Amino acid sequence: MSKDSTASKTPAIVVGLSGGVDSSVTALLLKQQGFDVSAIFMKNWNEDDDAGYCPAEEDFADAQSIAAELDIPFHGVNFAPEYWDNVFSYFLAEYKAGRTPNPDILCNKEIKFKVFLDYALSQGAEKIATGHYARVKEENGEFFLLKGKDNNKDQSYFLYTLGQYPLSKTLFPVGELEKPEVRALAEKFQLATWDKKDSTGICFIGERDFAKFLSKYLPAKPGDMVTPEGEVVGQHQGLMYHTLGQRKGLGIGGRKASKAAEKTAGMPWFAAQKNLSNNQLIVVQGKDHPLLYSQHLSASQLHWVSGKAPAAPFQCMAKTRYRQADQACTITEINKLAAKSTNLNTETQTNCVVEFDSPQFAITPGQSIVFYQGEICLGGGIID
Score class of each variant (00 low, 15 high):
Gly286Arg: 04
Phe356Asp: 07
Gln327Tyr: 01
Gln64Lys: 12
Pro11Asp: 10
Ile66Asn: 01
Val182Tyr: 02
Leu177Gly: 00
Tyr165Gly: 02
Gly249Thr: 08
Gly307Cys: 07
Gln123Arg: 13
Ser156Thr: 01
Asp326Glu: 10
Glu110Cys: 08
Ile72Ala: 05
Asn102Lys: 06
Asp195Gln: 11
Arg255Glu: 02
Leu291Val: 01
Thr26Ile: 04
Glu207His: 15
Cys203Ser: 15
Val284Gly: 07
Gln190His: 13
Lys149Phe: 12
Thr227Ser: 06
Arg321Gly: 04
Asp49Cys: 07
Gln273His: 13
Asn345Arg: 12
Ser215Asp: 11
Leu159Trp: 02
Ala271Arg: 08
Ala51Asp: 14
Gly230Val: 03
Val174Met: 05
Leu344Gln: 13
Arg247Ser: 12
Leu171Phe: 12
Thr342His: 08
Leu378Thr: 00
Asn108Leu: 03
Gly380Val: 00
Leu281Phe: 11
Asn152Tyr: 11
Val14Ile: 15
Ile72Tyr: 02
Thr264Ser: 12
Gly141Ile: 02
Ala338Asp: 13
Gln273Asn: 08
Leu185Pro: 07
Gly238Pro: 11
Ala271Lys: 00
Thr161His: 10
Leu244Lys: 09
Asn335Thr: 14
Glu94Asn: 12
Asn279His: 04
Ile40Asp: 01
Ile72Glu: 05
Ser122Pro: 00
Lys212Val: 07
Ala299Asp: 10
Gly175Val: 04
Lys274Gly: 01
Gly98Lys: 07
Asp22Trp: 06
Gly380Ala: 04
Ala362Val: 12
Lys188Val: 07
Arg99Val: 13
Phe91Asp: 01
Val25Thr: 08
Asp36Phe: 14
Asn351Lys: 06
Trp269Gln: 05
Ser298Cys: 10
Lys169Cys: 07
Leu291Ser: 10
Gly266Asn: 01
Leu106Ile: 13
Val353Tyr: 08
Ser306His: 04
Thr350Arg: 15
Val77Gln: 12
Gln273Phe: 03
Phe144Cys: 09
Val283Asn: 04
Pro268Tyr: 03
Gly16Gln: 07
Lys287Thr: 03
Cys316Ser: 04
Gly230Arg: 09
Ser258Val: 13
Gly234Thr: 08
Ala12Gln: 15
Lys137Glu: 14
Asn335Arg: 13
Ala192Pro: 05
Leu337Phe: 03
Glu69Pro: 12
Glu57Arg: 09
Tyr372Ser: 09
Leu378Gly: 06
Leu145Asn: 07
Pro359Lys: 07
Tyr95Ile: 10
Gly16Ile: 12
Glu355Arg: 14
Ala211Asn: 11
